[in-house]
Design a binder for these strands. Sequence first.
DNA 1: AAACGCGGCAACCGCGGGGGC
DNA 2: GGCCCCCGCGGTTGCCGCGTT
Length: 291
Amino acid sequence: MGCKHADKPKQKHKKGLWSPDEDLKLKSYILKHGHGCWSSVAVNAGLQRNGKSCRLRWINYLRPGLKRGMFSVEEEETILTLHGMLGNKWAQMAQHMPGRTDNEIKNYWHSYLKKKVAKIGETEAQAKAEKSSSASCLESSPSSMKSNPPTSTIESTEQLESSLMSDAEQSVSQCQMDLPREACRSNLPRVLFAEWLSLDQFRDQNCESSGNPVVATNNLVYYNSDFQDSFMHDLLLNEGTFGGGNHQGLSNGAVDDILPPALKFEDQILENSFVDFINGRFSLTSDDLYL
DNA sequence: AAACGCGGCAACCGCGGGGGC
DNA sequence: GGCCCCCGCGGTTGCCGCGTT
């Protein structure tokens, strides 16, 4: 916003796949200047692309902190649950899955999960039909027919769902405002810190160590920007003790390294991979980061 | 070895919302 | 108030790689 609608001679924009050279141009430009107005990014970075295309490329591919690669079982369950609650709100789903883009989630759904859900639903319906026909049952049980995702999945992620409820129906930021601090805090995922520090390491630890329920919420990180703001505020107030354990590495000087990204990011980005990592994890939209 | 079909993924398109002029 | 532009989102398309015939 606030971008001048100006200086743009109508030129033909390039389409199709991005070349490594274009990627490099776009990435280095944004890391240096931020994106601001996307249409000017395209021009200033020397790309024959339109702003929309640049934005998409950045968000889906170039942005730091993207996970890429296979979806884990936890992520899969998260998607199923979220889809059951939100429907095709891919962007909202992506907010709960750090490192994943809406496009990625959408593609995964259409290419794999949708079929999986249909298949499970089919077999369950079949089983149900057999059951009811054999046992000429008396009761009709509409409550057992949860609309979309298979109950097996739902059951396995009940915790996830219940914690999601508050977000989907009232939004996290509202929680931050309306509920007592402690109440909100109890919902906050400790895993968030693990994501910052070392996602994979943390996950491995938890996976290996006896089915700790925190794994189920591993991907359920409130990535909403309002949340981030208030969260960082809390982090400051509590000197990095927000949410308890698991984040020793952050609590001291590291917080200072993160907090003023606008001041430090640009200088450090090329040489400090940690800052790069933190910023990537910390802002999915990247708007906060680069402005 | 070539042709074909399929699935996954990246990118495009169209629409709606929001903000500036 | 209306128009224009930008942004973000969701749906869709098209390319490419891989497996099968």
